[in-house]
Design a protein around this nucleic acid. Sequence first.
DNA 1: CGCGCTGGACCGACCAGTCGGTATGCTGAC
DNA 2: GTCAGCATACCGACTGGTCGGTCCAGCGCG
Lengths: 196, 196
Amino acid sequence: MASVSAAATVRERLLAAATRLFAERGFESTSVQEIVRAAGVTKGAMYHYFDSKDDLLREIYARVLRLQTDRLNRFADAEGPVAERLHAAAVDVVVTTVENLDDSKIFFRSMHQLAPETYRSVRAERRRYHERFRDLVGEGVRAGVFRDDVPAEMVVDFFFGSVHHLGTWYHPDGPLSGQEVGRHFADLLLASLRPA
Amino acid sequence: MASVSAAATVRERLLAAATRLFAERGFESTSVQEIVRAAGVTKGAMYHYFDSKDDLLREIYARVLRLQTDRLNRFADAEGPVAERLHAAAVDVVVTTVENLDDSKIFFRSMHQLAPETYRSVRAERRRYHERFRDLVGEGVRAGVFRDDVPAEMVVDFFFGSVHHLGTWYHPDGPLSGQEVGRHFADLLLASLRPA
DNA sequence: CGCGCTGGACCGACCAGTCGGTATGCTGAC
DNA sequence: GTCAGCATACCGACTGGTCGGTCCAGCGCG
C-alpha cells in the first residue's frame, strides 16, 4: 500500500487515505490502523486531528456536500434559457462526480454509518441540493419547454440515480471522458423532458 | 426487534432476517448474533444451514439475480414492437425492485463484501442481465425507432442507475405505487430514446 | 523550556466461527 | 411391533483474534 504524498499536511493525508480506503472496501471494513498506515502516520496523530473514525467520515461528507452545492449554484444562477442552464448543470454534476469518484462511492454506501444527528444533517443538505435542481426543472415546466406529466421530483430522483450509479461502472482510464458521459447524460435528461 | 414468522422453515427465517438487517444497517454492521436473534434461532442452527455469514449473503444475491433474470426474459421474449417490449420490461424492473426493496438496498452496497470468486460470478450474471436489456435498446436503434447518437450501453447504465437508486428514496407506504413509478420511469426512458 | 504534535503500547468490547453434546425421527432387521 | 443404529437438526458456551479508542512519554521547534 503506497502512502499518500508526504507534502500535504497530516490532516489532509489522513482524509485522502481514508477516502480512498472507504471507497475501496467500505467504512466498516477499513480499520483505523489501515488508514494511518496508508497516510504514513500513527494512531496518535489521527486522534489528535479527529475525534473518532466517524469524525473522519463526517468531514468527508461535509466536503463533498460543500463542493457539489457550490458548483450547482454557479450553474443554476447563471443567465440564459432554463434548458441551457439545466443542461450545463447536468454536465457539470457528472464531471464533478467522476472527478471525485471515491467520494461518490462513499456517499450512498456509508450514509447509514453516520451518527444519527450527522445523518439527518447530511440528508437535509442533500435534500436542499435536490430541491435546487428540482426547481430548475419546475421552472422549465412552467415556461412550457418541459413536459408537465411527470413530477419534477421524480425526474430529479431519476437523474441523480444515474449519476450516483457512475461509481459502479465508470472508470477514469476507460474510453469515455467525464465530459463525454456528462454530455450524453444531459442529452438523455433533456430529451426525456421534451413535451410530447 | 420482532422475530420473523415461525411458520417458515429455519432456513427461510434466517434469510428473511438477514435480508432485513443487512438492508437496514449493512452487512458489516450486522452481527451473526443479531441475525439469529431476529430469526428466533441460535448460532448452532445458522451454522448448520450456512457455511458462514458470507454464505448467507451469497444466497441472497443468488436469489435476487435469479428472480430478476427470469422476469426480464419473460418480457424481452414476448411478441410485439420493441418499444412496447422495452417499456413493459422497464415497468416490470421497477415494480420488482420496489417489491424487493431490501434486496436492492443490499445489492450494490454489499457487493464488495462477497468473496472474490462469488463477486466475479455475481458481476458476470449482472452483466448478462444488462446485455439482455442493452440488446433490446440496440434492436430499437436498428429498427429506427430509437435515436442512434447515444451508446446503448450508456442508456442502460443511465436507466439502471435510476432503478438502483430507488432504495434510497422510495417508501412502500408513500403516495406512489410501484406501478406508477415504473410507468413514469419507463416513460422517461422511452422519451429519452426518441430520435431527435 | 514549553507545548503542539506524534509514536506506539495497551485496554476492554465485541465478533465470526467452533465444538462437544443433546434431541428427534427415520429405517430396516427380526 | 420394536428397537438398534444412524442421520439430521439444533444448542450455547467458548476461543482466538480484531477493533476503536486511550494514554503518556518524548521530540523538536519557537
